[in-house]
């Protein structure tokens, strides 16, 4: 909810009101993608950058989907299944995957409620932020930094995570290095797509190395 309000305020600082926040929250319904969108606005990003960045940063949804295949088979209604796929966000996924103590029909109902309640909270939060944003009496210059701060906190969480320490550290360093180098080579406007390509290539090359160390790590 707080994240939603923050998004609405940022969007209105860019000159797009609560109606736009509503449209985005209904259709995109992804915190990371929507926050990134704020930057796309200032950069006047091309459609291919929007698409590729949404795909790379949202790649985790692939894995949420994979682990939900069996559960979703129980949703016989086609539209309900489609909606549940749209609603597969970080929070909803987390709540649904810990609901294994429920069985059959109960779990289905629980998951459906979780999905649309989460969606409603997100929509209400962002719209509220959009409305509040129009009335903010103080200078909002520099408020964009909240996006940077958000990503830094996630980085710190990943870095301090006790599980998969080796993999996370190596991966984070790969990300930092490839994007810094690509920024220097390709410049501010065009470095995002080459960076993503570089990350995937480097991770591919490191595959055996990382897998070997992962086994060692899990033995400890």
């Amino acid at each position: 909810m707080v994240m939603g309000i923050g998004f609405g305020i940022l969007l209105s600082a860019k000159g797009y009101n609560a109606l736009w926040a509503f449209i985005m929250s209904v259709s995109i319904y992804s915190g990371t993608a929507q926050y990134l969108f704020i930057n796309f606005i200032s950069d006047k990003a091309s459609l291919s950058t929007v698409a590729l960045t949404s795909i790379i940063t949202g790649a985790r949804y692939l894995f949420y989907g994979v682990s939900m295949i069996d559960l979703y088979k129980k949703f016989k209604n086609k539209f309900k299944r489609l909606y549940m796929i749209l609603a597969l966000t970080d929070e909803t996924y987390a709540l649904m995957s810990v609901s294994t103590y429920l069985n059959g029909k109960e779990r289905e109902e629980y998951c459906t409620y979780i999905a649309w309640l989460d969606h409603v909270y997100w929509i209400v939060g962002t719209v509220l932020g959009g409305i509040l944003g129009a009335f903010i009496p103080f200078n909002t210059k520099g408020i964009d930094f909240s996006l940077t701060a958000l990503f830094i906190t996630i980085c710190v969480d990943q870095w301090l995570d006790k599980a998969n320490k080796f993999t996370n550290h190596l991966s984070a360093l790969t990300g930092f290095a490839s994007s810094l180098i690509c920024l220097m080579i390709f410049g501010r406007k065009n470095f995002l797509i080459p960076s993503m390509a570089a990350i995937i290539i480097i991770l591919f090359l490191l595959k055996d190395f990382i897998n070997k160390n992962n086994i060692k790590e899990s033995e400890i």
Partner: peptide, 8 residues
């Protein structure tokens, strides 16, 4: 492996 790199 990819999430940490993407966040960075």
């Amino acid at each position: 492996t990819q999430p940490a790199a993407v966040m960075a």
